[in-house]
Amino acid sequence: MFSYRHSFHAGNHGDVLKHICQMMLINKLKEKDKGFEYFDTHSGAGVYDLQSQEALKTLEFKQGIERLAIDKNSHVLVNQYHELVTAYQKFNQYPGSPEIAKSLLREQDKLTLMEWHPQEVKNLKQNLNGKNISIHHRDGFEGLIALTPPALKRGLVLIDPPYELESEYEQVLQTVCKVHKRWATGIFAIWYPLISERKTDENSFSTTNSKLGKSQSLITSLSQQPFKNLLNIELCVTSPSDFGGMYGSGMVIINAPWQLDVNMEKSLQQITPLLAQDSGASFKVEWLIEG
């Protein structure tokens, strides 16, 4: 249960997609002066050492952030992300989603972080602090249900579990649906992996054993809910392989703000060729529920 450490994967192509999307959502919330609350259900350590034993074992950041050669014509959000990441790379570090959120939030905003791994929550508390930051050593699914709706009516939830357990896909669905009923105005951003070939044509949690099948079942189930809107974004850096492995990832957004689709498409047009590992690299931005 406590085997997953994001330090093995920090700065990979999944992080690039997730964190560009996260920054774009926070920027949209900041367009209004009134404060909002940011929730991170699986916070990890907050900041990662790219020279750590874990990072050097996989070298996944070399297929992610190290491929981002940004020029003056890049989308403003891609430039913002690259500028932020570069500041940490100078110290051989990569900022996780809690650190990115901290760097963007204002005095009137709140940051609520949850992490269940005993060592990671210690690292998180060492790496992040501040009067508007609340760190909880608890299961992120349980914590999100317990801590919502927040006093601040506006807000963003980032959900990106490790998906090591097959039950986590269904936990995401159940948790989001339960919280959304009580906090319908919140923005929910859910990251999911695209791993290996799908092993069955059945599209349900109970009948598919592949992680790709589980991801697709999660998206299908979310698209059947009574949300105002639902936007799906995927980035594939290579073609699916018979040998398995993560060939891409996605973000599905509930209550996606205006023009998120347009801006993410422009960003992905620029970063997909940079992250591409072969001719199979691609991206898509699609509305599953149009509001």
Rank of each mutant, 00 (worst) to 15 (best):
G11F: 03
D15C: 10
C21V: 15
L29W: 02
K32R: 10
E37G: 15
E37T: 15
H42V: 14
S43Y: 00
G46F: 02
Q51H: 13
S52G: 05
S52D: 06
Q53W: 10
K62I: 04
A69Q: 13
A69G: 14
V76M: 00
L77W: 05
V78F: 00
N79F: 04
K90M: 00
I100C: 03
A101M: 05
K102A: 08
D109F: 04
T112N: 13
M114T: 00
P118E: 02
Q119V: 15
E120K: 12
V121E: 03
L124T: 10
N127I: 03
N129A: 15
N129W: 12
G130M: 12
K131T: 12
S134W: 06
R138Q: 09
D139S: 15
D139Q: 15
D139R: 15
G140W: 01
F141P: 10
G143Q: 06
I145D: 04
P150D: 04
P150L: 04
G155A: 12
D160S: 05
E170F: 03
Q171D: 10
L173F: 13
L173M: 14
T175W: 00
V176H: 04
H180Q: 10
K181I: 15
R182T: 13
E197W: 10
T200I: 15
N209W: 03
N209V: 11
K214Y: 01
Q216P: 10
S221V: 03
S223I: 09
Q224C: 14
K228Q: 14
L235D: 09
V237S: 08
T238G: 04
S241D: 02
F243P: 07
I253G: 08
I253V: 12
D261Y: 00
M264I: 02
S267F: 00
T272C: 09
A276I: 05
D278K: 03
S279Y: 04
K284W: 01
E286Q: 09
W287V: 06
L288A: 00
